[in-house]
């Protein structure tokens, strides 16, 4: 049992215990500076009526959908390109490079590049005749912008995961398709994608859990604005807990986020287990 002892210690102290404690605090009024006071379901009642909470949930979902959608499509595209064109380590290394830079740094660099007046991206847009876009200032652009930045950072990493999945597809499948005279496009839709599904679902589960927890990019750039357009749930929880001394309420929101994540992940895992592979 000595093998599992350290991990169990860490698990109990830093996962189980805080989860239980967090669950308890969610039923209290706790300002951090005074002892927690039990207040029953008051935090949850507040949450139901808190338009900021619902807005934050909505914004987060919008972010997740854009982020995961674009990232997955791009990652599959990149993986296909690499798979069909080149096995070059250099190309793979460049594709992965953004992942090595911390979230905060990535956010800062893009913040500078996307500025409406002095940002280089708007200069490029100007060259092709497009008016400057207020990426962070326009409430319609803010979330897609934040999502896009994170796609930039993660697409290479995800592409390599998909790439690994592609390599597991035996070549005889493709050979058979070629004999049948299938076009590359048809082969992709009818053979590659279905066979890739187990890997894709796994990638989706992992990236989705991460995506719901978007925080760094928002904290560094828009800080929730404009007009709450980027006040994602994680940022809102942070704000409530640490700038407004509302720890109990923040815990309640965190618990709800946990529940949502658990449901989403379980659904995805069920999807994964339903059909391990279409190849079998």
């Amino acid at each position: 049992m000595i093998f599992i002892a350290p991990a169990t210690l860490g698990f109990v102290v830093f996962y189980i215990w805080p989860t239980l404690r967090g669950a308890y605090l969610s039923f209290t009024e706790y300002s951090l500076l005074e002892a927690p006071k039990f207040n029953g379901l008051a935090n949850y009642e507040r949450m139901v009526q808190d338009s900021f909470f619902w807005n934050a949930l909505g914004v987060t979902v919008e972010y997740v959908v854009i982020n995961i959608g674009v990232q997955t499509v791009l990652a599959v595209g990149i993986a296909m390109l690499m798979y069909r064109l080149t096995k070059s380590i250099t190309v793979r290394a460049i594709v992965l490079a953004p992942y090595l830079v911390a979230n905060v740094v990535v956010a800062l660099v893009w913040y500078w590049m996307l500025d409406v007046q002095v940002g280089v991206v708007n200069t490029f847009l100007g060259w092709v005749g497009i008016d400057p876009v207020a990426f962070f200032g326009d409430s319609h652009w803010a979330i897609p912008t934040v999502a896009g930045i994170n796609v930039w950072r993660h697409m290479g990493y995800t592409a390599l995961l998909v790439f690994a999945g592609l390599q597991t597809i035996p070549s005889y499948v493709y050979e058979a398709a070629e004999v049948d005279g299938s076009t590359e496009w048809k082969t992709f839709w009818r053979i590659t994608l279905p066979l890739l599904r187990p890997v894709l679902v796994m990638v989706l589960v992992v990236t989705m859990i991460g995506s719901f927890q978007i925080f760094d990019t928002v904290a560094v750039t828009t800080q929730g604005g404009p007009i709450n357009a980027t006040r994602v749930i994680y940022y809102y929880i942070y704000e409530r807990a640490f700038t407004r001394f509302d720890f109990g309420y923040a815990s309640a929101m965190a618990l709800v986020l946990f529940a949502i994540l658990a449901v989403v992940s379980l659904l995805q895992l069920r999807l994964l287990r339903a059909k391990e592979s279409d190849l079998a």
């Binding site: 913040y111 500078w112 996307l114 500025d115 409406v116 007046q117 002095v118 940002g119 400057p132 207020a134 990426f135 962070f136 200032g137 326009d138 409430s139 652009w141 604005g225 404009p226």
Partner: peptide, 18 residues
């Protein structure tokens, strides 16, 4: 400027300086 332009990226003094 529109609110989106005013809020996007660098602040008012930098734009004034530009």
């Amino acid at each position: 400027p529109t609110y989106a332009q005013a809020k996007s990226g660098v602040d008012v003094t930098t734009s004034f300086g530009a």
